[in-house]
Computed example of a mutant assay.
Amino acid sequence: MTDLLSAVDALTKPESEHHVIMSDYGVYRAPIYVRTHTVTHPPLLERLREAVNPSKNTAAGSSALASTRNLIDSDALYEYSKMASAIGSWCNAFKADRTRNPITDLRRWYVAFQQYDNEPQWYIDELRHWATLIRNILEPPKRIEITEPCPVCGKRAYTDQDGNELLFPVIVEYRAPKDEGDAIAPQALCRACQTVWKGYDAVAELAEELKQHADAHG
């Protein structure tokens, strides 16, 4: 159950980030370590709930316009509602007492789940998926549109969910590392044929194919 507990903890426990602070160059032209600054964030589920109405987190005395207050982040609300509903259903299924606080209820569900001889992998995958969704809402990945056609389907345009035809179906998404040395793999997607390139090697291969196409039609 270690993986399941880790997946539950990732959503329900505070997160700490450690930032190393260095001074200017010292006598030997090398940065000098000063200290490590630790920032603690609320649990992911709590941060998602707060993201539903970000204006509520505005500090007192803020000069935010009245028209910008009480705005609702519909994506955050949709995902939070789905997760809270699913957790409530899990609690009912495994006879865990509910409080209607998703953080408390998820941890109570975990305790109840251990009393049953069930395979936890589906729940592990689902909880990890939730954590990724929340992080993408809180810190959206950077996105680059590729102007060359998709090397798989050859299309230069795609149709969005509203039926609009748009140019440049291939996009690359990545998240800049917060700390030096962090490895965060990029991902590319063709919105026309739904081909996915995941990880550094796959995206590098895509870049080579795009370069070959550009050179051939240069």
Rank of each mutant, 00 (worst) to 15 (best):
P141F: 01
L44P: 00
L77F: 08
D24W: 07
H19N: 08
L45M: 06
D125W: 13
D3K: 14
D201Y: 05
L5Q: 11
T36H: 05
A112M: 04
M83S: 07
F168N: 15
L77V: 01
D75Q: 09
G61L: 02
W109H: 04
V27I: 14
E145L: 05
L11R: 07
T195L: 04
L127C: 06
R156L: 13
H217A: 03
K198W: 06
E173H: 06
D73H: 09
W109E: 00
G154C: 01
Y25I: 02
E46F: 06
F168W: 10
A7Y: 01
Y78I: 10
Q161P: 00
D215C: 05
R107W: 01
P140M: 02
E126M: 15
E205D: 13
P43C: 13
G154N: 01
A59L: 14
A59P: 09
F168H: 10
N164Q: 12
K211V: 12
W197T: 01
A96N: 02
H18Y: 11
Q114C: 07
Q212W: 14
A51M: 11
S74K: 12
A192W: 00
M1K: 06
Q121G: 04
V170P: 08
P54F: 03
P169N: 05
A60P: 09
T68Q: 11
M83A: 11
Q194K: 13
N118F: 15
H41R: 14
R35Q: 07
I184S: 06
I103Y: 04
A66Q: 14
V196P: 05
Y158I: 03
P120Q: 05
S85D: 15
P14R: 04
N53L: 08
E79D: 09
G154D: 02
S63G: 11
T99N: 07
E119A: 14
R107P: 01
A96Q: 01
R128C: 09
S62Q: 04
A185E: 15
D9N: 10
Y28L: 04
T40K: 13
V152G: 00
L48W: 02
A188T: 00
D9I: 10
T132H: 13
N57M: 14
I184Q: 09
D179W: 10
P140W: 00
C150P: 02
V8N: 04
L65Q: 12
A7C: 07
T38R: 05
L5I: 08
A76C: 02
F113I: 08
A86H: 05
E17N: 13
A188C: 03
W90P: 00
G181L: 08
D75V: 08
F113Y: 15
P14W: 03
L11W: 01
R35K: 12
R175C: 05
T38E: 05
V111I: 10
E50W: 10
Q115L: 14
Q212L: 15
S63E: 11
V111P: 04
P186N: 06
V170L: 10
V20I: 12
D3G: 07
M1P: 12
